[in-house]
C-alpha cells in the first residue's frame, strides 16, 4: 500500500487518536450521567471513519447511524462542538437538541446520525439523487452497521442507486455485532460483498482496521461515482472494543476475543508503526501527538461543561420552515 505524504499521514494518525481519546473520555462521562441518553462508543473503528472521510471532499455528503461520533469527528467537526452536543448544550453541533445520536449539519454535508437501524443508506441515497439531479460534482456516503445489512430498506435504497446510477457509496462499518448478535449467525450467504454484487454494483470486503486500505477503496469508489458509473459497496471489517452502549457488559463474546483484536489488529497501533517505519515520526513525536490530543479533548470537556443549555424560548425553532409561526 503506498503511503501518503508526511503531513497527510500524520493527520490521519492524529485524527484516529482524537476519536479514541474522545470516545474513552465521553464513555466515562456518560457513566457519570453527563451524557443525556447515553452513547455508543466507536473505539476500535477509527480506521473506517478516518479512511472514508479522508478520501472525500469537504462537501461530499455523509449519512450515518446511531454510532457516529467517529464519522463526525473525521468529517472535520470539532471535538468541542461534538462533546457539547453530547452534553446537550447550545454550543453543540445540533444546538443541544440532538445528543449523541443526532449529530449533523446539512450545510456541511452531514445529513445526520439517527436511531433507526438501516436508515442511513436510504438518507444517503436520497442525497445522492439530489446531487445527480443538480449535476453537482459530489458523492454521498451511507454508513451502516452489519446489523443494518439485514433490514429490507437498505436493499431497496441500494437497488434504486444501481438502476439510477447514483453517486452513492455504501460503507458497512462492520464491527461484527448488532448488540449481542454475531454477524455470522444472521447473515444469509455469509459474504456481504457477494450479496451487494447481486444488485449489480462493484462491491468489496476490505480490512477496516487499515486506514490506508479503506482510504484507497473509497477514493476509487468516489472516482467511479463522479464518472457516472454509479454506486459502490464497501464492507469494512472492524471491531468494537466496548459494549454496544455505554456500560453494557454482555456475555456474548469472550474477553479473549476482545483482547486478541486489540493486541493484534488495533488500527492506531498498526498505523503508528507504519508512520514510524516510513520515517515520518519517532516515538517522541508520537508521544507529543498523543499529549496534544489529550489536551484537545480536555479542552472539549471544559468547553462543554461551561456551555449553557439551549434557552427554553428556542424550543420551537427548527421544527418547521419558520413560516407557520409556531410560538411558545
Amino acid at each position: 500500500m503506498t503511503i501518503p505524504d508526511k503531513k497527510t499521514s500524520l493527520g490521519l494518525l492524529r485524527q484516529m487518536m482524537v476519536i479514541r481519546d474522545f470516545e474513552e473520555t465521553a464513555d466515562k462521562l456518560s457513566l457519570r450521567g453527563k451524557v443525556s441518553g447515553g452513547m455508543h462508543n466507536s473505539s476500535g473503528q477509527e480506521a473506517v471513519a478516518v479512511g472514508v472521510l479522508s478520501a472525500l471532499a469537504p462537501l461530499d455528503v455523509i449519512a450515518t447511524t446511531h454510532r457516529s461520533h467517529h464519522h463526525t469527528l473525521a468529517k472535520g467537526f470539532t471535538s468541542r462542538e461534538i462533546m457539547a452536543e453530547l452534553f446537550t448544550r447550545s454550543t453543540g453541533i445540533s444546538g443541544g437538541r440532538g445528543a449523541s445520536m443526532h449529530l449533523g449539519d446539512v450545510t456541511k454535508g452531514h445529513f445526520g446520525g439517527n436511531g433507526i437501524v438501516g436508515a442511513g443508506v436510504g438518507i444517503a441515497m436520497g442525497a445522492a439523487l439530489g446531487i445527480q439531479q443538480k449535476g453537482d460534482k459530489k458523492v454521498s456516503v451511507g454508513f451502516i452497521g452489519d446489523g443494518g445489512m439485514n433490514t429490507g430498506r437498505t436493499w431497496e435504497a441500494v437497488n434504486m442507486a444501481v438502476i439510477w446510477k447514483l453517486p452513492l457509496i455504501v460503507v458497512v462499518d462492520n464491527n461484527q455485532y448488532a448488540v449481542e448478535t454475531f454477524v455470522g449467525r444472521v447473515t444469509g450467504g455469509g459474504d456481504l460483498a457477494k450479496r451487494a454484487e447481486g444488485f449489480g454494483m462493484k462491491a468489496f470486503n476490505i480490512d477496516g482496521m487499515d486506514v490506508l486500505e479503506v482510504r484507497k477503496y473509497v477514493s476509487e469508489a468516489r472516482e467511479r461515482a463522479l464518472a457516472g458509473e454509479g454506486p459502490s459497496f464497501i464492507n469494512a471489517l472492524t471491531y468494537r472494543y466496548y459494549g454496544h452502549n455505554v456500560g453494557e457488559k454482555g456475555q456474548y463474546r469472550t474477553q479473549e476475543e476482545i483482547d486478541t483484536w486489540k493486541s493484534t489488529k488495533d488500527p492506531i497501533d498498526h498505523f503508528t508503526a507504519v508512520v514510524i517505519e516510513n520515517g515520518y515520526a519517532d516515538q517522541a513525536a508520537i508521544d507529543e501527538m498523543r499529549a496534544s490530543v489529550r489536551a484537545e479533548i480536555e479542552d472539549a470537556v471544559a468547553f462543554a461543561d461551561a456551555s449553557p443549555e439551549p434557552d427554553i424560548s428556542t424550543i420551537y425553532d427548527d421544527i418547521d420552515s419558520g413560516k407557520l409561526g409556531v410560538q411558545l
Binding site: G38, N245, V246
Partner: peptide, 11 residues
C-alpha cells in the same frame, strides 16, 4: 466507586 448511569434514562 459510583452509581453508573446506564441505558437511556438516568434514574
Amino acid at each position: 466507586i459510583f452509581v453508573p448511569a446506564l441505558g437511556m434514562a438516568m434514574d
